[in-house]
Design a protein around this nucleic acid. Structure first.
Length: 256
DNA sequence: ATGTCACAAACTTTGTGA
């Protein structure tokens, strides 16, 4: 079984790359983020031609999350209880039941800068998410929680900690908020190191990708009961290359 | 590092968000 997560940075702009990737890697489940597409414009027909079905949550322009599965997913929920907005709710969380798994596709608020109201929103959002996930966990669901967390959990998950002085993504409150999710019984699956890097995101600017200046902010959190079944966790770095790439690469987990 | 990319509104350019 192959599960993957990928911030596509506009499904409209990325559709050819996403379709090509689905054909090449044939995941059973692909969670995508930053679809930036309204429900009525979602490319269901193109996906169906490849044998996929999508569950979607999008308001257009910004944010937007979805799951793309080979078999139709059930019990689709958009957002979660007590989810904060900025000020209104945004399309940042979608969960589906697929086989015996409860799969979440998340796009955590960026935070902008630590002194911005968006940073407080990010922390409140993550705290509310924890409550929602705890409820599902207590109901006995096997959780897969993946997406763009906009948090680098460890120092090794950025190219140079000194470059992040005063920046979001690496602050202790953000890392604590992610750690609090793991304490629900989830494992932050560690991808194989490629070219000495665990990175999943590289800024488009300044040739950062080619200089190895990236971050690991796209995470795959797996119910710890399932971790013995993990065969491989890897980043498809090649998806960051070539024509019109997303600034994120897919994270893939292969399970028995 | 501030070099790119994507979006929308008003347009062939700019402000915003990442």
């Amino acid at each position: 079984m192959r599960l993957a997560t990928w911030n596509v940075n506009s499904l409209t702009a990325r559709l050819p790359r996403v379709l090509e990737w689905l054909e090449q890697q044939a995941p059973d489940v692909l969670c995508i983020q930053e679809t930036k597409i309204a429900e009525e414009n979602f490319p269901h027909a193109e996906l169906r031609e490849l044998g996929y079905v999508a569950a979607t949550y999008g308001m257009g322009q910004w944010n937007g999350v979805a799951t793309i599965t080979k078999v139709d997913a059930a019990e689709v929920t958009r957002g979660f209880d007590e989810e904060p907005g900025f000020p209104d709710p945004e399309a940042r969380a979608l969960a589906v039941t697929w086989n015996d798994l409860r799969i979440w596709s998340l796009y955590v608020p960026n935070g902008r800068t630590p002194d911005d109201p968006h940073y407080d929103y990010k922390l409140r959002w993550l705290a509310a998410l924890r409550v929602a996930l705890a409820a599902e966990r207590e109901a006995g669901r096997k959780l897969v929680v993946c997406g763009d967390f906009n948090v680098a959990p460890n120092d090794r998950d950025v190219w140079d900690m000194a470059a992040f002085e005063g920046s979001t993504h690496v602050t202790q409150p953000e890392r604590d908020a992610v750690k609090a999710l793991l304490e629900l019984g989830l494992t932050d699956l560690q991808p194989r190191i490629v070219k000495g890097e665990p990175f999943t995101y590289w800024d488009y600017r300044a040739g950062n990708f080619h200089k190895g200046l990236g971050m690991r902010i796209d995470l795959m959190l797996l119910d710890e009961a399932l971790t013995p079944k993990v065969k491989d966790v890897w980043i498809d770095r090649d998806a960051r290359k070539g024509k019109k790439p997303s600034d994120h690469a897919p994270v893939v987990v292969d399970l028995d």
